[in-house]
């Protein structure tokens, strides 16, 4: 049983990573990753909503008639998004200001609805929670990687600390919109290359 939970978790982190493999939930990924910190904050917020929503969907899965399940899921997700929105506004106004409308927009992050529909609505609570946690962490890692690349190349810093040598000229395009598309494109390509290599390796051994 523990093996199953680990498998559900790992599925979201790597095998079906939402950004690297499935390419869903791209809007916040591109928009908020101007720095590692913003990427991490967005990843945490999304993970919280994803885990809470999947757990609740799984709890009520036998009470909800099949015909109205999608609206019910959306209401559940929107509730948790509102909680996050108000919490960040009260506790972390700076981060709230930077993430802007992308916090309420977590509600339309396809990852959350997709997990509710494809997994949480059919599975027992512990498996749903572990699956959601995996997908949340996978999403957060993707945002952190992309945010780090863009911050290091675009500003020469990482989490606000100077990491590049002093004579490094920042590539300011990396923190502008085009940089988001281009760096994510190359990251996706690199991940494809790695999975192709490891698939080839496991076949030949």
């Amino acid at each position: 049983m523990v093996f199953n939970l680990v498998k559900d978790f790992w599925n979201g982190v790597w095998d079906e990573n939402t950004i690297f493999k499935l390419q869903i939930g791209m809007c916040p990924t591109l928009a908020v990753t101007t720095s590692a910190q913003n990427g991490l904050a967005m990843g945490l917020a999304t993970t919280f909503v994803l885990v809470c929503a999947s757990t609740l969907v799984s709890i009520v899965r036998k009470l909800v008639p099949k015909e109205v399940r999608i609206p019910v899921y959306i209401v559940i997700i929107a509730t948790f998004v509102t909680i996050v929105d108000l919490f960040l506004k009260a506790g972390f106004p700076d981060i709230h200001a930077v993430l802007g409308i992308f916090i309420p927009l977590i509600v339309v992050n396809c990852v959350i609805l997709a997990r509710a529909e494809a997994f949480a609505g059919k599975m027992p609570v512990h498996r749903a929670a572990s699956d959601a946690f995996g997908f949340g962490i996978g999403f957060m890692v993707a945002l952190l990687v992309l945010g780090s690349i863009r911050e290091i190349l675009g500003m020469g810093t990482w989490f606000g600390m100077q990491v590049m040598p002093a004579n490094f000229v920042p590539w300011s395009i990396m923190v502008l919109p085009p940089g988001a598309f281009i760096s994510l494109g190359f990251v996706v390509g690199a991940v494809n290359l790695i999975s192709r290599r490891s698939a080839a390796g496991s076949r030949s051994s």
Partner: peptide
């Protein structure tokens, strides 16, 4: 197109170049 960039990878890079034009 290099195999690893086919699909989403090249689409994103193309989008980046269009975005530069739009700036």
């Amino acid at each position: 197109i290099p195999e690893s960039l086919q699909g989403a990878g090249i689409a994103l890079i193309t989008a980046g170049l269009i975005s530069i034009a739009f700036s």
